[in-house]
Each structure stands twice: as C-alpha cells, then as structure tokens.
Write a protein that binds this DNA or RNA. Structure first.
Length: 378
DNA sequence: AATGCGGGGGC
DNA sequence: GCCCCAGCATT
C-alpha cells in the first residue's frame, strides 16, 4: 500500500512539472507563474468556464466566456440579468438547461451566500447545475481544495495508467478513488488542470503521443496493452430518425414570425419558427394543421440536424404573410422579429438552419449555418 | 443504472 | 460517417 501511495505521489509530481512547462493559456486560467506571484483565479470565472465546458470543447467555449464576462462581469450582475438575455447569449452553445441553471445558480449565490461561492465540494454541489465534476473542479481550482476531479479526460488518463478493464460508467467509483489517491495536497487545482490538459493534448482518444507523456513510465496500458483501447466503454445505441416540417413566415419588411418553446425539455426556453411535431413516423403528414397562417406556402427544401439521441429532418416551407393575417389555431405566443435583429435571438442552431434554408441571407457575419440543399425530407 | 439533453471539430 | 468533448438532472 505504501508503495502505491509513493508511486502516485511520484506521478503527481511529474504531472505538475509537466503542467508548469506545457500548460495551455486559457482566458479563465491563472498561469502557474502568475499564481506564484500571488494572483488568484476569480471563483466566478472558474465556475462560469466550468459550466460552459461541460461536454463542450475549449475552442467552442472561449468566445462565449469572453462574451459573458463582458456582459456580466460579476456573479451579482448575472444574478440580476434578464433570463431571456442570458438565453440569447448562450444560443448556439447547446445543452440549454445549463443556461437556465447558470442563472438560477447566480441567483442562489447572491441570495443565499452573500454573493460568494461556497468553498467546499458539498456546498457547491448543492447549487443548480453543479454536479460531482464541477463541484470538485471549482473547489480545487478556485479554492485550493484537495478534491478528486474526474472528467472525460481524467477518466482516459487514469484508465490507461491502471489498464482498467471495467467499462464506463461502472468504473467511475474506482477511477475516482485512484484520482483521489493521486491528487496532491499542494497545488490540487494545477494538478487537476494538468491532468485535463494531458488528456486533451497527449493522452488523446486516438493515437496518443505516449513518447511525449510525462507519465509514460507509470502507464500500465503502455507496458502491457494498447493504450488507445482504453477506457473500455459500453456499446452505444443507434440514433432514430425523426421528421417534421418548419414554417418560415416573412412579412413585407422582412420580419420573421417566431415563438418561444416550452421552458423544459428539448431546446427548452429557446426560440423557434412554427412547425409540426417531430415524429418517428415517416409516412404521416400533419403539416396542414401546423401552418401558422393561411398563405401560399412553398416548399424550399429540407434541413438535417443531429441531436444527442436522434437525427431530425425538417422540410422547410416559406411564405410572405401580411402581419394582419388571420392566424390558424389559437394560443400562439409568437411575435414578428425584424430581419436586422434575427441573429441576436435565442435561436438554436437547428432553427437557424431552417430560417437560412428559407432566407439565404438571413444571418450575416458568419452567424449563418451552412445552407443545406436537400430537396426532400425523406 | 439508464435516459434526455446540442453542437462542433477531428479523423 | 463515427467518436468525443473540463456533465447534470431526472427517473
């Protein structure tokens, strides 16, 4: 047992040394050099970046992080922000429950904790949108706590170091124990970030650069097996296909008719154009009752979009509609959005695709997804 | 323990 | 195409 502990401590020292030399420069990060001069990370920045980084790449997060920091410089600013403005700023980043919980969390910190984040894992995890990973990461990075930080990168590194045969997610408790054993009392935050940087740049899913790895002499998978085959994972299910129709109504000024989706579920709280339900049946056609206005609707192709658990194909229809036109059905909570401000709405990517399909120049400055030229929805 | 929940980049 | 990404909430 003592041998195991010493080995872990030696590996941790190597990892920290590597991090000092090879860490990435990120907008929310205090470099080891600056930390040595007494600089501390802002817990608000660490929390904000960690929530954005949940299942999201560093590259995608950078611009959003800067935008949020500019719009809401402190957690108090975010706590009093308009939720709709937060959804607009988050649009395109995905997993929109994160944005709703981000706002709730900021409110809870302001209301229940005097505007300061709790410094313990337990206290952090009690907040909306903060789970095992984020609580440990914020505690370690922002508050120098010796927390075991386990994300997808660390899972890969640990599974290879120990050649863990148990597939994920069953192996997580064992991995967490091994990370806890390896996490140093000194600089736990840098250790966590170092492990994640290692997983992102050296210990990669495909073709890991083992020759450059500071831990290669400790890696059981490298000695006895093929590191690339770790971590073991349960087989994943196939994605079903769903189909539907979307209706892009444009008035004489170029404004587009939009409406708000339900607060919960898929794309919860985000903005959309009217459309049919998305069904798994390819034969049915319920597009008639979903048209928002009586008009000369004309089919203008289809778009395809892949979500986490299904693929969607939407046939897109467009029409020019007088703003005074009689609506079909009732209970619509929609509005006419001017063309100039379309790009600033809380439109998820699939909706931008649909609008761009109907109005090729609807979005300027690269906000426009690639126009898809598919002719049918099947 | 399993499922729902976005979007983009790498290969 | 497939895989993965600094996961969380809910059942």
């Amino acid at each position: 047992m003592m041998t195991t502990i010493s080995k872990a401590a030696g590996a941790a020292a190597l990892l920290l040394s590597w991090y000092d030399r090879h860490h990435r420069d990120l907008p929310w990060r205090i470099s080891p050099v600056m930390a040595a001069r007494g600089m501390h990370p802002d817990p608000y920045h660490i929390w904000l970046s960690e929530v954005m980084l949940q299942q999201t790449t560093v590259q995608a997060v950078k611009a959003y992080f800067e935008k949020f920091r500019r719009l809401w410089p402190t957690v108090a600013d975010l706590a009093v922000a308009d939720t709709e403005e937060v959804m607009k700023a988050w649009a395109g980043l995905g997993y929109y429950a994160r944005a709703r919980n981000l706002k709730k969390c900021a409110e809870a910190v302001a209301r229940d904790h005097g505007g300061r984040f709790p410094e313990t894992e337990e206290g952090l995890k009690a907040l909306p949108g903060i789970g095992d990973y984020t609580a440990a990461a914020v505690a370690a990075i922002a508050f120098n706590r010796q927390s075991a930080v386990l994300d997808g990168n660390v899972e890969r590194v640990i599974s290879r170091l120990h050649a863990i045969e148990t597939p994920l997610p069953a192996a997580k408790p064992q991995m967490r124990m091994l990370v806890a054993e390896m996490t140093p009392q000194d600089r736990p935050g840098d250790f966590a970030q170092g492990m994640m940087d290692l997983g992102a740049t050296i210990c990669t899913p495909k073709r890991p650069a083992c020759a450059l790895c500071p831990l290669n002499d400790h890696c059981l998978a490298l000695k006895t097996a093929d590191p690339e085959t770790f971590p073991r994972k349960a087989a994943k299910k196939d994605k079903p296909l769903r189909v539907g129709a979307a209706f892009v109504a444009v008035d004489q000024s170029g404004a587009v008719y939009l409406r708000k989706r339900a607060e919960t579920g898929l794309l919860g709280g985000m903005t959309e154009v009217p459309g049919t339900a998305w069904t798994s049946r390819v034969d049915g056609d319920n597009s008639i009752e979903a048209k928002p206005f009586p008009a000369q609707w004309h089919a203008c192709g289809a778009i395809s979009h892949v979500f986490t658990h299904f693929e969607l194909r939407l046939s897109v229809h467009s029409a020019t509609v007088a703003r005074s036109a009689q609506m079909i059905g009732s209970g619509e909570n929609g509005w006419w959005e001017p063309a100039e401000t379309l790009g600033a709405q809380a439109l998820p990517t699939v909706m931008k695709k649909a609008i761009a399909q109907a109005i090729p120049h609807a979005f300027k400055d690269g906000a426009e997804p690639k126009r898809q030229v598919r002719k049918t929805a099947t």
